[in-house]
Amino acid sequence: MNETRREFVGGALIACGALGAGLGASRLIRKLKKPESPPTTLVAALTAKGELVRVPAETATVHAHPAPAVGEAARQGVPGRKWVMVIDLAKCSGCANCTIACNKMHATSPDRHWIRVFRMQDSAHTAPYWFPKPCFHCDNPPCTKVCPVGATFKRQDGIVLIDNERCIGCRFCMAACPYSTRYFNWARPDNTVHAGKTYSPETGVPRRIGTVEKCDFCPEMASQGILPACVTSCDMAAIYFGDENEDAVSNSEETVRLSRLLEQRAAYRYLAELGTEPRVYYLPPKNREFPAPSLAPKAKSSTPIAPDHASHVHQKATT
């Protein structure tokens, strides 16, 4: 009860500040935007119905982000949907635009990568390839198995989310995830850009110290027919996202039949032998559109490793 009071008082104070800051910021943004983008400039935008329309750039910038579900609705998910992702390794150039766009959209701190590009090499004699890795939103998720409080949960639309208002920060889910997908808020997160937002597990913001976060498949956008930032930011159109129940996935260019794509391209799931049943499929890097990587990706928080050091890095790509 003490906590509630303190949280209320503190919350009220921060809320007041946030309100002011948010007001000021939004005014400022609008003021700055207007002269920069002449009204004649049109940009392509996808409407909620899935139609590609041309809109003035000015109006596009102020589009409201879809309101995320809160409470029990956020735990249940969208009935009838089964979100799924397909990543075409033949198209991936390792540019990490997906990571940048994701970090920007979710306003994550630079030390984390909800989608991260790895440089894989299955053996010394096979060609290396780029491997973007989001959360796999497994159908038999080891992380939700071990959560003692049900803070991380799987929804009926296939998405695995985290409720940061319930998470106790034990990090057991991080230990359980064999794909090293989860991140922990070790320090107090910077929530300035999320000021005034109501918390939802669908967006994970405002962030909470001492809780876990990860790739969330952008559920609030998906239910509005908007593709995740990693998909739309991929110039190579290597990432597909869609609804398995509809048998269709879309990349930044087109919508295709999921079943045909998986069949024709001999899709596989990473480390599926662990029994996790990932919801992310990979298309093997055959007939690549980009040369094989030679160096490890440039992680912003660390130095790249030398090629000879990287050559022992060794991962299985099972089919």
């Binding site: 008082v9 921060i14 946030a18 910021a25 409201a64 000021a195 918390y199 405002p206």
Partner: peptide, 11 residues
């Protein structure tokens, strides 16, 4: 825990 502002301010 931290208390975060949760005002309903839609900019």
């Amino acid at each position: 825990g931290l208390a975060f502002g949760t005002t309903a301010f839609g900019a």
